[in-house]
């Protein structure tokens, strides 16, 4: 066999995929051909080097996650199960986030308003609504308690025109 043919057969030879006859032919050629023998060695070494590729391991709980996906085991965790049991799972998360944000802003404004009242220049008449209603002023162009509001009121206080 020619060197070219042998070179092509080397891969299958090393993988043990040649017939007995082909195997003998390759071995006979290798015994007498330095160039093909060298290629045989290089190819074997390449194969060996490939073994240095790192093996990774599955993260713990791999099967559990697969079985959750299939629905073999229920989702664990109090919040997760309550969420689904209450039927809130269908509620889109942006809606939920907006509601939480609005509640947060109202509460913040409510607390902020009660602080403003302690300031010396604060005119209670400017904010006749008490409690929750006054917190809705957070949506005003200049919300009470904001930096702009305080600045405006400080200016008018200095000028002697308290609002």
């Amino acid at each position: 066999m020619k060197c070219q043919t042998i070179e092509k057969k080397l891969s299958a030879y090393q993988d043990g995929e040649l017939s007995v006859l082909e195997k003998e032919q390759v071995e006979r050629h290798l015994a007498g051909c330095h160039s093909c023998l060298e290629q045989h060695v290089r190819l074997k070494q390449t194969w060996h080097i490939l073994g240095d590729l790192t093996e990774i391991r599955p993260t713990p709980g791999f099967y559990k996650r697969v079985s959750h996906k299939i629905g073999l085991t229920p989702e664990k965790g109090l919040l997760g199960s309550c969420w689904r049991n209450w039927g809130w799972g269908a509620l889109p998360s942006p809606v939920f986030a907006s509601v939480i944000l609005a509640i947060g802003m109202l509460c913040g404004a409510y607390i902020g308003n009660s602080f403003i009242k302690t300031q010396p220049f604060h005119n209670v008449a400017a904010y006749p609504e008490e409690g929750f209603l006054s917190s809705l002023k957070v949506f005003d162009p200049v919300p009470p308690g904001s930096l702009a509001d305080n600045y405006e009121r400080l200016l008018s206080y200095n000028e002697g025109h308290i609002r």
Binding site: S11, A12, E17, E38, Q45, L50
Partner: peptide, 26 residues
């Protein structure tokens, strides 16, 4: 499959030549 592997091994031999030279001493 045989010819796929012949081509794959040939390419890898070239790509990983640095390691070959280090360990083979050719």
């Amino acid at each position: 499959v045989e010819s796929l592997l012949v081509r794959a091994k040939r390419t890898l031999q070239k790509k990983l030549e640095i390691f070959l030279k280090k360990s083979a001493g050719f």
